[in-house]
Design a protein around this nucleic acid. Structure first.
Lengths: 279, 279
DNA sequence: CGAGTCATTGATCTGTCTCAATATTAGTGG
DNA sequence: CCACTAATATTGAGACAGATCAATGACTCG
Protein backbone atom coordinates (compact mmCIF):
# COMPACT_ATOMS: atom_id res chain seq x y z
CA UNK A 1 0.00 0.00 0.00
CA UNK A 2 2.85 2.33 0.76
CA UNK A 3 5.61 3.16 -1.63
CA UNK A 4 8.91 1.78 -0.29
CA UNK A 5 10.53 5.12 -1.05
CA UNK A 6 7.61 6.77 0.69
CA UNK A 7 9.44 7.88 3.75
CA UNK A 8 12.14 9.65 1.84
CA UNK A 9 9.76 11.00 -0.69
CA UNK A 10 7.56 12.44 1.98
CA UNK A 11 10.37 14.29 3.67
CA UNK A 12 13.23 15.13 1.34
CA UNK A 13 14.38 17.80 3.76
CA UNK A 14 14.77 15.34 6.61
CA UNK A 15 17.71 13.06 5.87
CA UNK A 16 17.34 9.59 7.30
CA UNK A 17 19.97 10.12 9.92
CA UNK A 18 19.00 8.31 13.11
CA UNK A 19 16.51 10.44 14.99
CA UNK A 20 18.20 12.01 17.91
CA UNK A 21 16.75 11.36 21.35
CA UNK A 22 14.08 13.64 22.61
CA UNK A 23 15.30 16.47 24.73
CA UNK A 24 13.64 19.51 26.19
CA UNK A 25 16.93 21.35 26.30
CA UNK A 26 17.13 24.00 23.64
CA UNK A 27 19.87 23.31 21.17
CA UNK A 28 21.64 26.63 20.87
CA UNK A 29 23.70 25.94 17.79
CA UNK A 30 23.30 29.38 16.33
CA UNK A 31 25.62 30.40 13.58
CA UNK A 32 25.91 33.21 11.05
CA UNK A 33 23.78 32.71 7.95
CA UNK A 34 26.08 31.74 5.15
CA UNK A 35 23.68 30.70 2.44
CA UNK A 36 21.51 33.71 1.69
CA UNK A 37 17.72 33.95 1.54
CA UNK A 38 18.07 34.52 -2.19
CA UNK A 39 18.85 30.85 -2.74
CA UNK A 40 16.64 29.39 -0.01
CA UNK A 41 14.15 26.63 -0.78
CA UNK A 42 11.37 28.32 1.14
CA UNK A 43 12.08 31.69 -0.41
CA UNK A 44 8.65 32.30 -1.89
CA UNK A 45 6.98 31.25 1.33
CA UNK A 46 8.55 33.72 3.69
CA UNK A 47 9.84 36.53 1.51
CA UNK A 48 8.16 38.94 -0.88
CA UNK A 49 8.51 38.48 -4.60
CA UNK A 50 9.30 41.05 -7.26
CA UNK A 51 12.14 42.75 -5.47
CA UNK A 52 14.74 44.89 -7.18
CA UNK A 53 18.29 43.62 -7.04
CA UNK A 54 19.45 46.17 -4.54
CA UNK A 55 16.45 45.39 -2.37
CA UNK A 56 17.29 41.70 -2.57
CA UNK A 57 20.66 42.39 -1.02
CA UNK A 58 19.04 44.22 1.84
CA UNK A 59 16.54 41.42 2.38
CA UNK A 60 19.36 39.09 3.23
CA UNK A 61 19.94 41.32 6.23
CA UNK A 62 16.62 40.26 7.70
CA UNK A 63 18.02 36.91 8.67
CA UNK A 64 21.06 37.26 10.85
CA UNK A 65 21.32 33.74 12.21
CA UNK A 66 20.09 30.22 11.82
CA UNK A 67 19.40 27.80 14.61
CA UNK A 68 19.02 24.06 14.80
CA UNK A 69 16.30 22.80 17.09
CA UNK A 70 16.25 19.14 17.93
CA UNK A 71 13.08 17.11 18.08
CA UNK A 72 11.36 18.01 21.33
CA UNK A 73 13.35 21.23 21.66
CA UNK A 74 11.65 24.44 22.67
CA UNK A 75 11.97 27.34 20.24
CA UNK A 76 10.35 29.81 22.58
CA UNK A 77 8.24 29.71 25.66
CA UNK A 78 5.23 31.65 26.86
CA UNK A 79 6.52 34.66 28.74
CA UNK A 80 9.82 34.87 26.88
CA UNK A 81 10.76 38.32 25.73
CA UNK A 82 9.93 38.78 22.07
CA UNK A 83 12.78 39.97 19.90
CA UNK A 84 12.52 38.14 16.62
CA UNK A 85 10.36 36.14 14.31
CA UNK A 86 11.34 32.63 13.30
CA UNK A 87 11.05 31.40 9.74
CA UNK A 88 11.11 27.65 9.51
CA UNK A 89 13.76 26.54 7.06
CA UNK A 90 13.14 22.86 7.56
CA UNK A 91 11.33 20.69 10.04
CA UNK A 92 8.02 20.79 11.82
CA UNK A 93 6.69 22.60 14.88
CA UNK A 94 3.64 22.79 17.07
CA UNK A 95 2.60 25.89 18.96
CA UNK A 96 0.41 25.66 22.01
CA UNK A 97 -0.83 27.54 25.02
CA UNK A 98 -0.69 25.99 28.44
CA UNK A 99 -3.44 27.13 30.78
CA UNK A 100 -2.91 27.39 34.51
CA UNK A 101 -4.60 24.09 35.28
CA UNK A 102 -2.01 22.21 33.27
CA UNK A 103 -4.10 21.55 30.19
CA UNK A 104 -2.61 22.30 26.80
CA UNK A 105 -4.23 23.62 23.68
CA UNK A 106 -2.33 23.19 20.45
CA UNK A 107 -2.95 26.31 18.39
CA UNK A 108 -1.18 25.30 15.21
CA UNK A 109 1.29 23.16 13.35
CA UNK A 110 4.00 24.90 11.35
CA UNK A 111 6.23 23.60 8.59
CA UNK A 112 8.96 24.89 6.28
CA UNK A 113 8.23 28.42 5.11
CA UNK A 114 5.87 29.20 7.97
CA UNK A 115 6.66 32.00 10.36
CA UNK A 116 6.53 31.59 14.14
CA UNK A 117 6.36 34.19 16.87
CA UNK A 118 3.80 36.67 15.56
CA UNK A 119 1.92 36.44 18.85
CA UNK A 120 4.79 38.12 20.67
CA UNK A 121 4.66 41.44 18.85
CA UNK A 122 1.66 42.81 20.75
CA UNK A 123 3.07 42.68 24.26
CA UNK A 124 6.77 42.19 23.49
CA UNK A 125 6.42 38.79 25.12
CA UNK A 126 5.45 35.46 23.66
CA UNK A 127 2.06 34.16 24.69
CA UNK A 128 2.49 30.58 23.53
CA UNK A 129 5.12 27.88 23.26
CA UNK A 130 6.73 26.49 20.14
CA UNK A 131 8.23 23.01 20.12
CA UNK A 132 9.96 21.15 17.30
CA UNK A 133 8.26 17.86 16.41
CA UNK A 134 11.30 16.80 14.42
CA UNK A 135 14.84 18.04 14.03
CA UNK A 136 14.42 21.46 12.49
CA UNK A 137 16.22 24.56 11.37
CA UNK A 138 14.91 28.09 11.72
CA UNK A 139 16.01 31.53 10.53
CA UNK A 140 16.10 34.22 13.18
CA UNK A 141 14.69 37.52 11.98
CA UNK A 142 15.12 40.33 14.52
CA UNK A 143 11.86 42.17 14.47
CA UNK A 144 13.22 45.69 14.74
CA UNK A 145 15.33 44.97 11.71
CA UNK A 146 12.21 43.84 9.87
CA UNK A 147 10.51 47.05 10.89
CA UNK A 148 13.44 49.20 9.80
CA UNK A 149 13.76 47.51 6.44
CA UNK A 150 10.06 47.47 5.75
CA UNK A 151 10.03 51.24 6.11
CA UNK A 152 12.20 51.54 3.01
CA UNK A 153 11.23 48.38 1.14
CA UNK A 154 7.51 48.59 0.46
CA UNK A 155 7.20 45.00 -0.81
CA UNK A 156 8.63 43.76 2.48
CA UNK A 157 6.18 45.90 4.39
CA UNK A 158 3.25 44.48 2.43
CA UNK A 159 4.60 41.01 2.94
CA UNK A 160 4.76 41.36 6.70
CA UNK A 161 1.20 42.63 6.76
CA UNK A 162 0.06 39.78 4.57
CA UNK A 163 1.72 37.15 6.73
CA UNK A 164 0.06 38.47 9.85
CA UNK A 165 -3.30 38.73 8.14
CA UNK A 166 -2.94 35.20 6.83
CA UNK A 167 -2.45 34.00 10.37
CA UNK A 168 -5.61 35.81 11.45
CA UNK A 169 -7.56 34.14 8.66
CA UNK A 170 -6.11 30.75 9.52
CA UNK A 171 -7.18 31.12 13.12
CA UNK A 172 -10.62 32.25 12.00
CA UNK A 173 -10.95 29.03 10.07
CA UNK A 174 -9.82 27.05 13.07
CA UNK A 175 -12.46 28.75 15.17
CA UNK A 176 -15.07 27.65 12.66
CA UNK A 177 -13.76 24.13 12.92
CA UNK A 178 -13.74 24.10 16.72
CA UNK A 179 -17.04 25.87 17.06
CA UNK A 180 -19.27 24.07 14.67
CA UNK A 181 -17.88 20.84 13.23
CA UNK A 182 -18.39 17.22 14.20
CA UNK A 183 -15.39 15.07 15.01
CA UNK A 184 -15.30 13.52 11.54
CA UNK A 185 -15.44 16.90 9.82
CA UNK A 186 -12.65 18.17 12.07
CA UNK A 187 -10.28 15.37 11.25
CA UNK A 188 -11.16 15.41 7.55
CA UNK A 189 -10.57 19.15 7.45
CA UNK A 190 -7.30 18.73 9.29
CA UNK A 191 -5.98 16.07 6.92
CA UNK A 192 -6.96 18.00 3.82
CA UNK A 193 -5.37 21.15 5.13
CA UNK A 194 -2.17 19.36 6.03
CA UNK A 195 -1.82 17.58 2.72
CA UNK A 196 -2.59 20.80 0.86
CA UNK A 197 0.17 22.62 2.64
CA UNK A 198 2.58 19.77 2.03
CA UNK A 199 1.62 19.73 -1.61
CA UNK A 200 2.28 23.46 -1.88
CA UNK A 201 5.79 22.63 -0.71
CA UNK A 202 6.34 20.03 -3.36
CA UNK A 203 5.27 16.90 -1.50
CA UNK A 204 2.72 14.31 -2.46
CA UNK A 205 -0.87 15.30 -2.86
CA UNK A 206 -2.10 12.08 -1.35
CA UNK A 207 0.45 10.79 1.11
CA UNK A 208 1.73 12.32 4.28
CA UNK A 209 3.61 11.48 7.42
CA UNK A 210 2.14 12.90 10.58
CA UNK A 211 4.76 14.45 12.79
CA UNK A 212 2.48 14.73 15.79
CA UNK A 213 0.78 12.26 18.11
CA UNK A 214 -2.92 11.51 18.19
CA UNK A 215 -3.08 13.46 21.40
CA UNK A 216 -1.61 16.56 19.74
CA UNK A 217 -4.02 16.24 16.85
CA UNK A 218 -6.82 15.90 19.37
CA UNK A 219 -5.70 18.94 21.28
CA UNK A 220 -5.64 20.98 18.10
CA UNK A 221 -9.06 19.73 17.04
CA UNK A 222 -10.70 19.93 20.44
CA UNK A 223 -11.05 16.15 20.67
CA UNK A 224 -9.67 13.41 22.87
CA UNK A 225 -6.98 11.16 21.46
CA UNK A 226 -9.29 8.14 21.56
CA UNK A 227 -11.79 9.98 19.40
CA UNK A 228 -9.09 10.86 16.89
CA UNK A 229 -8.03 7.24 16.75
CA UNK A 230 -11.59 6.04 16.28
CA UNK A 231 -12.26 8.49 13.47
CA UNK A 232 -9.08 7.42 11.73
CA UNK A 233 -10.29 3.83 11.92
CA UNK A 234 -13.72 4.83 10.66
CA UNK A 235 -12.20 6.65 7.68
CA UNK A 236 -9.99 3.68 6.92
CA UNK A 237 -12.93 1.28 7.09
CA UNK A 238 -14.84 3.43 4.62
CA UNK A 239 -11.88 3.48 2.30
CA UNK A 240 -11.33 7.24 2.52
CA UNK A 241 -7.79 6.92 3.78
CA UNK A 242 -5.21 4.31 4.54
CA UNK A 243 -3.75 4.56 8.01
CA UNK A 244 -0.53 2.91 9.06
CA UNK A 245 0.66 4.45 12.27
CA UNK A 246 1.59 7.97 11.25
CA UNK A 247 1.71 7.24 7.55
CA UNK A 248 -1.49 8.42 5.96
CA UNK A 249 -2.60 7.93 2.38
CA UNK A 250 -5.54 9.97 1.20
CA UNK A 251 -7.47 7.64 -1.07
CA UNK A 252 -10.64 9.64 -1.66
CA UNK A 253 -10.08 13.33 -1.07
CA UNK A 254 -13.43 14.02 -2.73
CA UNK A 255 -15.26 12.00 -0.10
CA UNK A 256 -13.15 13.53 2.66
CA UNK A 257 -14.22 16.95 1.46
CA UNK A 258 -17.82 15.75 1.56
CA UNK A 259 -17.36 14.72 5.18
CA UNK A 260 -16.24 18.24 6.05
CA UNK A 261 -19.47 19.71 4.76
CA UNK A 262 -21.76 17.09 6.11
CA UNK A 263 -24.50 18.50 8.32
CA UNK A 264 -24.56 17.53 11.94
CA UNK A 265 -27.52 15.23 12.07
CA UNK A 266 -30.27 15.34 9.48
CA UNK A 267 -30.38 12.71 6.76
CA UNK A 268 -28.15 10.03 8.16
CA UNK A 269 -28.30 6.41 7.22
CA UNK A 270 -27.70 7.12 3.57
CA UNK A 271 -24.89 8.11 1.22
CA UNK A 272 -21.76 7.64 3.28
CA UNK A 273 -23.26 5.46 5.96
CA UNK A 274 -23.84 2.70 3.49
CA UNK A 275 -20.11 2.72 2.85
CA UNK A 276 -19.51 1.98 6.49
CA UNK A 277 -20.90 -1.46 5.83
CA UNK A 278 -18.29 -2.31 3.23
CA UNK A 279 -16.28 -5.50 3.97
CA UNK B 1 -31.21 45.13 41.43
CA UNK B 2 -30.53 47.38 38.46
CA UNK B 3 -29.68 51.03 38.68
CA UNK B 4 -32.50 53.04 37.09
CA UNK B 5 -29.88 55.01 35.16
CA UNK B 6 -28.29 51.73 34.20
CA UNK B 7 -29.22 51.77 30.58
CA UNK B 8 -27.80 55.19 29.93
CA UNK B 9 -24.81 54.59 32.07
CA UNK B 10 -24.03 51.41 30.25
CA UNK B 11 -24.12 53.01 26.83
CA UNK B 12 -23.41 56.72 26.89
CA UNK B 13 -22.47 56.59 23.22
CA UNK B 14 -25.86 55.24 22.20
CA UNK B 15 -28.49 57.91 22.74
CA UNK B 16 -31.84 56.49 23.71
CA UNK B 17 -33.42 57.23 20.39
CA UNK B 18 -35.81 54.44 19.46
CA UNK B 19 -33.82 51.56 18.04
CA UNK B 20 -34.16 51.53 14.29
CA UNK B 21 -35.59 48.42 12.72
CA UNK B 22 -33.21 45.76 11.63
CA UNK B 23 -32.18 46.09 8.05
CA UNK B 24 -29.64 44.33 5.95
CA UNK B 25 -29.28 47.36 3.74
CA UNK B 26 -26.01 49.13 4.34
CA UNK B 27 -26.47 52.68 5.49
CA UNK B 28 -24.08 54.56 3.27
CA UNK B 29 -24.01 57.90 5.01
CA UNK B 30 -20.35 58.55 4.43
CA UNK B 31 -19.08 62.03 5.00
CA UNK B 32 -15.74 63.78 5.35
CA UNK B 33 -14.24 63.50 8.80
CA UNK B 34 -14.69 66.84 10.48
CA UNK B 35 -13.67 66.14 14.04
CA UNK B 36 -10.09 64.87 14.00
CA UNK B 37 -8.64 61.76 15.54
CA UNK B 38 -6.75 63.99 17.94
CA UNK B 39 -9.91 64.69 19.88
CA UNK B 40 -11.57 61.28 19.50
CA UNK B 41 -12.81 59.38 22.52
CA UNK B 42 -11.27 56.13 21.38
CA UNK B 43 -7.99 57.77 20.52
CA UNK B 44 -5.78 55.61 22.73
CA UNK B 45 -7.46 52.46 21.51
CA UNK B 46 -6.81 52.77 17.81
CA UNK B 47 -3.91 55.18 17.48
CA UNK B 48 -0.35 55.15 18.75
CA UNK B 49 0.66 57.32 21.66
CA UNK B 50 3.71 59.52 22.02
CA UNK B 51 3.55 61.19 18.64
CA UNK B 52 5.26 64.41 17.78
CA UNK B 53 3.00 67.30 16.87
CA UNK B 54 3.78 67.18 13.18
CA UNK B 55 3.16 63.44 13.19
CA UNK B 56 -0.16 64.02 14.91
CA UNK B 57 -1.27 66.18 12.00
CA UNK B 58 -0.39 63.43 9.55
CA UNK B 59 -2.21 60.82 11.60
CA UNK B 60 -5.44 62.65 11.00
CA UNK B 61 -4.94 61.76 7.34
CA UNK B 62 -5.38 58.09 8.14
CA UNK B 63 -9.10 58.56 8.55
CA UNK B 64 -10.64 60.10 5.48
CA UNK B 65 -14.28 59.36 6.14
CA UNK B 66 -16.74 58.27 8.74
CA UNK B 67 -19.74 56.11 8.16
CA UNK B 68 -22.90 55.42 10.10
CA UNK B 69 -24.07 51.84 10.12
CA UNK B 70 -27.53 51.13 11.39
CA UNK B 71 -28.35 48.19 13.61
CA UNK B 72 -28.37 45.11 11.42
CA UNK B 73 -26.37 46.86 8.69
CA UNK B 74 -23.51 45.10 6.97
CA UNK B 75 -20.14 46.81 7.19
CA UNK B 76 -18.47 44.40 4.84
CA UNK B 77 -19.17 41.00 3.42
CA UNK B 78 -17.05 37.94 2.75
CA UNK B 79 -15.65 38.29 -0.74
CA UNK B 80 -15.74 42.09 -0.79
CA UNK B 81 -12.61 43.71 -2.07
CA UNK B 82 -10.46 44.90 0.80
CA UNK B 83 -9.44 48.52 0.66
CA UNK B 84 -9.56 49.86 4.17
CA UNK B 85 -9.65 49.06 7.83
CA UNK B 86 -12.55 50.19 9.98
CA UNK B 87 -12.04 51.67 13.42
CA UNK B 88 -15.20 51.60 15.48
CA UNK B 89 -15.96 55.04 16.81
CA UNK B 90 -19.12 54.01 18.58
CA UNK B 91 -21.43 51.04 18.56
CA UNK B 92 -21.04 47.31 18.52
CA UNK B 93 -20.34 44.72 15.83
CA UNK B 94 -20.11 41.00 15.33
CA UNK B 95 -17.91 39.36 12.75
CA UNK B 96 -18.67 35.90 11.46
CA UNK B 97 -17.93 33.42 8.74
CA UNK B 98 -20.71 31.69 6.89
CA UNK B 99 -19.84 28.21 5.66
CA UNK B 100 -21.34 26.79 2.49
CA UNK B 101 -23.95 24.73 4.31
CA UNK B 102 -25.54 27.84 5.74
CA UNK B 103 -24.17 27.58 9.25
CA UNK B 104 -22.59 30.64 10.81
CA UNK B 105 -19.67 30.93 13.15
CA UNK B 106 -19.31 34.18 15.04
CA UNK B 107 -15.59 34.92 15.25
CA UNK B 108 -15.69 37.99 17.43
CA UNK B 109 -17.54 40.92 18.92
CA UNK B 110 -16.07 44.37 18.42
CA UNK B 111 -16.72 47.61 20.27
CA UNK B 112 -15.55 51.22 20.23
CA UNK B 113 -11.83 51.43 19.60
CA UNK B 114 -11.59 48.00 18.00
CA UNK B 115 -10.42 47.63 14.43
CA UNK B 116 -12.28 45.57 11.85
CA UNK B 117 -11.12 44.19 8.53
CA UNK B 118 -7.66 42.83 9.30
CA UNK B 119 -8.62 39.53 7.70
CA UNK B 120 -8.81 41.18 4.29
CA UNK B 121 -5.18 42.21 4.03
CA UNK B 122 -3.85 38.77 3.11
CA UNK B 123 -5.84 38.16 -0.05
CA UNK B 124 -7.11 41.69 -0.74
CA UNK B 125 -10.58 40.33 -0.07
CA UNK B 126 -12.53 40.03 3.12
CA UNK B 127 -13.01 36.51 4.41
CA UNK B 128 -15.73 37.23 6.95
CA UNK B 129 -18.76 39.43 7.44
CA UNK B 130 -19.17 42.31 9.86
CA UNK B 131 -22.62 43.39 11.03
CA UNK B 132 -23.59 46.18 13.41
CA UNK B 133 -25.50 44.96 16.46
CA UNK B 134 -26.53 48.51 17.26
CA UNK B 135 -26.42 51.84 15.48
CA UNK B 136 -22.73 52.49 15.05
CA UNK B 137 -20.18 54.80 13.58
CA UNK B 138 -16.90 53.75 12.03
CA UNK B 139 -13.82 55.53 10.72
CA UNK B 140 -12.62 54.42 7.29
CA UNK B 141 -8.87 54.06 7.10
CA UNK B 142 -7.63 53.33 3.55
CA UNK B 143 -5.00 50.69 3.99
CA UNK B 144 -2.55 51.95 1.43
CA UNK B 145 -2.60 55.27 3.23
CA UNK B 146 -1.83 53.45 6.47
CA UNK B 147 1.05 51.69 4.76
CA UNK B 148 2.40 54.92 3.28
CA UNK B 149 2.22 56.79 6.54
CA UNK B 150 3.64 53.97 8.61
CA UNK B 151 6.73 54.04 6.42
CA UNK B 152 7.56 57.49 7.71
CA UNK B 153 5.93 57.41 11.13
CA UNK B 154 7.56 54.58 13.07
CA UNK B 155 5.11 54.70 15.99
CA UNK B 156 2.25 54.17 13.56
CA UNK B 157 4.07 51.23 12.02
CA UNK B 158 4.59 49.65 15.43
CA UNK B 159 0.98 50.29 16.27
CA UNK B 160 -0.31 48.52 13.19
CA UNK B 161 1.88 45.54 13.97
CA UNK B 162 0.68 45.48 17.54
CA UNK B 163 -2.98 45.63 16.58
CA UNK B 164 -2.59 42.70 14.23
CA UNK B 165 -0.62 40.71 16.76
CA UNK B 166 -3.21 41.45 19.41
CA UNK B 167 -5.85 39.98 17.16
CA UNK B 168 -3.75 36.85 16.71
CA UNK B 169 -3.43 36.48 20.48
CA UNK B 170 -7.15 37.06 20.96
CA UNK B 171 -7.96 34.32 18.50
CA UNK B 172 -5.47 32.03 20.18
CA UNK B 173 -7.33 32.53 23.42
CA UNK B 174 -10.62 31.82 21.71
CA UNK B 175 -9.19 28.60 20.33
CA UNK B 176 -8.28 27.58 23.86
CA UNK B 177 -11.82 28.32 24.94
CA UNK B 178 -13.40 26.40 22.09
CA UNK B 179 -11.00 23.52 22.28
CA UNK B 180 -10.86 22.71 25.92
CA UNK B 181 -13.46 24.43 28.10
CA UNK B 182 -16.80 23.24 29.41
CA UNK B 183 -19.91 25.25 28.68
CA UNK B 184 -19.84 26.99 32.05
CA UNK B 185 -16.21 27.97 31.66
CA UNK B 186 -16.91 29.31 28.18
CA UNK B 187 -19.71 31.57 29.26
CA UNK B 188 -17.89 32.72 32.38
CA UNK B 189 -14.83 33.51 30.31
CA UNK B 190 -16.96 35.34 27.78
CA UNK B 191 -18.68 37.50 30.38
CA UNK B 192 -15.45 38.38 32.15
CA UNK B 193 -13.79 39.28 28.89
CA UNK B 194 -16.69 41.44 27.82
CA UNK B 195 -16.96 43.32 31.08
CA UNK B 196 -13.20 43.83 31.14
CA UNK B 197 -13.24 45.41 27.73
CA UNK B 198 -16.19 47.59 28.65
CA UNK B 199 -14.42 48.62 31.82
CA UNK B 200 -11.33 49.58 29.85
CA UNK B 201 -13.63 51.94 27.96
CA UNK B 202 -14.93 53.59 31.07
CA UNK B 203 -18.03 51.50 31.71
CA UNK B 204 -19.05 49.63 34.79
CA UNK B 205 -16.92 46.82 36.06
CA UNK B 206 -19.92 44.78 37.07
CA UNK B 207 -22.83 45.63 34.83
CA UNK B 208 -23.20 45.22 31.14
CA UNK B 209 -25.81 45.17 28.43
CA UNK B 210 -25.43 42.38 25.92
CA UNK B 211 -25.83 43.61 22.38
CA UNK B 212 -26.13 40.13 20.92
CA UNK B 213 -28.67 37.33 21.13
CA UNK B 214 -28.20 34.05 22.98
CA UNK B 215 -27.79 32.42 19.62
CA UNK B 216 -24.91 34.73 18.67
CA UNK B 217 -23.24 34.12 22.01
CA UNK B 218 -23.70 30.41 21.43
CA UNK B 219 -22.22 30.59 17.97
CA UNK B 220 -19.19 32.42 19.30
CA UNK B 221 -18.75 29.94 22.15
CA UNK B 222 -19.50 26.81 20.16
CA UNK B 223 -22.70 26.15 22.09
CA UNK B 224 -26.37 26.03 21.26
CA UNK B 225 -28.56 28.90 22.38
CA UNK B 226 -30.47 26.68 24.80
CA UNK B 227 -27.23 25.76 26.51
CA UNK B 228 -26.27 29.42 26.82
CA UNK B 229 -29.64 30.16 28.35
CA UNK B 230 -29.35 27.26 30.79
CA UNK B 231 -25.88 28.29 31.93
CA UNK B 232 -27.08 31.84 32.47
CA UNK B 233 -29.86 30.47 34.66
CA UNK B 234 -27.42 28.24 36.52
CA UNK B 235 -25.10 31.18 37.21
CA UNK B 236 -28.03 33.26 38.38
CA UNK B 237 -29.24 30.51 40.71
CA UNK B 238 -25.79 30.25 42.25
CA UNK B 239 -25.70 34.00 42.76
CA UNK B 240 -22.76 34.59 40.43
CA UNK B 241 -24.66 36.96 38.19
CA UNK B 242 -28.00 38.62 37.89
CA UNK B 243 -29.67 38.11 34.55
CA UNK B 244 -32.53 40.21 33.28
CA UNK B 245 -32.89 39.68 29.57
CA UNK B 246 -29.73 41.23 28.18
CA UNK B 247 -28.91 43.18 31.29
CA UNK B 248 -26.23 41.33 33.18
CA UNK B 249 -24.85 42.18 36.59
CA UNK B 250 -21.69 40.41 37.64
CA UNK B 251 -22.16 39.74 41.34
CA UNK B 252 -19.22 37.47 42.07
CA UNK B 253 -16.49 37.91 39.49
CA UNK B 254 -14.17 35.93 41.78
CA UNK B 255 -16.40 32.88 41.57
CA UNK B 256 -16.85 33.38 37.85
CA UNK B 257 -13.10 33.31 37.48
CA UNK B 258 -13.06 30.09 39.48
CA UNK B 259 -15.57 28.57 37.08
CA UNK B 260 -13.25 29.33 34.17
CA UNK B 261 -10.47 27.29 35.72
CA UNK B 262 -12.57 24.44 36.96
CA UNK B 263 -11.43 21.06 35.70
CA UNK B 264 -13.66 19.11 33.41
CA UNK B 265 -14.74 16.25 35.56
CA UNK B 266 -12.73 15.21 38.56
CA UNK B 267 -13.82 16.33 42.00
CA UNK B 268 -17.40 17.24 41.38
CA UNK B 269 -20.12 17.27 43.99
CA UNK B 270 -18.21 19.66 46.17
CA UNK B 271 -17.23 23.31 46.28
CA UNK B 272 -19.46 24.91 43.72
CA UNK B 273 -21.92 22.09 43.38
CA UNK B 274 -23.08 22.57 46.91
CA UNK B 275 -23.92 26.14 45.95
CA UNK B 276 -26.26 24.84 43.29
CA UNK B 277 -28.51 23.70 46.09
CA UNK B 278 -29.03 27.19 47.49
CA UNK B 279 -32.67 28.35 47.61
C1' DC C 1 -53.52 42.86 17.65
C1' DG C 2 -51.09 39.31 15.09
C1' DA C 3 -46.64 37.77 13.42
C1' DG C 4 -42.11 37.27 14.32
C1' DT C 5 -38.03 37.32 17.24
C1' DC C 6 -36.01 36.11 21.41
C1' DA C 7 -35.61 33.63 25.72
C1' DT C 8 -36.59 30.06 29.06
C1' DT C 9 -37.36 25.45 30.55
C1' DG C 10 -38.35 20.39 30.27
C1' DA C 11 -37.73 15.63 28.28
C1' DT C 12 -35.07 12.81 25.64
C1' DC C 13 -31.24 11.45 22.66
C1' DT C 14 -26.50 11.01 21.15
C1' DG C 15 -21.65 12.15 20.17
C1' DT C 16 -17.90 12.42 22.56
C1' DC C 17 -15.49 11.67 26.91
C1' DT C 18 -13.98 8.68 30.46
C1' DC C 19 -12.26 4.55 32.17
C1' DA C 20 -9.97 0.40 31.15
C1' DA C 21 -7.49 -3.30 28.86
C1' DT C 22 -4.25 -4.58 25.35
C1' DA C 23 -0.83 -4.05 21.62
C1' DT C 24 2.85 -1.95 19.49
C1' DT C 25 6.75 0.80 19.24
C1' DA C 26 10.63 3.72 20.78
C1' DG C 27 13.97 4.86 23.99
C1' DT C 28 17.08 3.44 28.02
C1' DG C 29 20.32 1.05 30.43
C1' DG C 30 22.76 -3.09 31.75
C1' DC D 1 22.32 -7.07 22.09
C1' DC D 2 18.38 -7.79 24.72
C1' DA D 3 15.35 -6.84 28.46
C1' DC D 4 12.81 -3.06 30.52
C1' DT D 5 10.26 0.96 30.81
C1' DA D 6 7.68 4.67 28.93
C1' DA D 7 5.18 6.53 25.24
C1' DT D 8 1.88 5.80 21.74
C1' DA D 9 -2.10 3.68 19.56
C1' DT D 10 -6.25 0.90 19.22
C1' DT D 11 -10.63 -0.76 20.77
C1' DG D 12 -14.57 -1.67 23.90
C1' DA D 13 -18.16 -0.50 27.49
C1' DG D 14 -20.49 2.73 29.91
C1' DA D 15 -21.40 7.61 31.47
C1' DC D 16 -22.47 12.28 30.82
C1' DA D 17 -22.47 17.09 28.83
C1' DG D 18 -24.55 19.24 25.59
C1' DA D 19 -27.63 18.82 21.43
C1' DT D 20 -32.13 18.15 19.82
C1' DC D 21 -37.01 18.43 19.93
C1' DA D 22 -40.81 20.72 21.81
C1' DA D 23 -43.84 23.85 24.36
C1' DT D 24 -44.51 28.26 26.41
C1' DG D 25 -44.09 33.11 27.47
C1' DA D 26 -42.38 37.87 26.85
C1' DC D 27 -41.40 41.44 23.94
C1' DT D 28 -41.11 44.21 19.48
C1' DC D 29 -42.77 46.05 15.59
C1' DG D 30 -45.50 46.78 11.73
Amino acid sequence: MFDPAFKNFASPLAPDAPAERRSTVLALHSYPAKSTCSNCNSRDMCLPSGLKIEEMDQIDLVVDQRRHVKKGGLLFHSGDRFAQLFAIRSGFFKSYIASEDGSEQVTGFQMAGDVLGLDGIASEHHTCNAVALEDSEVCLMPFNRIQDLSRTIAPLQRHVHRIMSREIVRENDTMLLLGSMRSEARLASFLLNLVDRMHARGFSQSQLVLRMTREEIGSYLGLKLETVSRVFSKFAKRGLVDVDKRNIAILRSDLLRAVVHQPKRRGRSDSLDCMAKLP
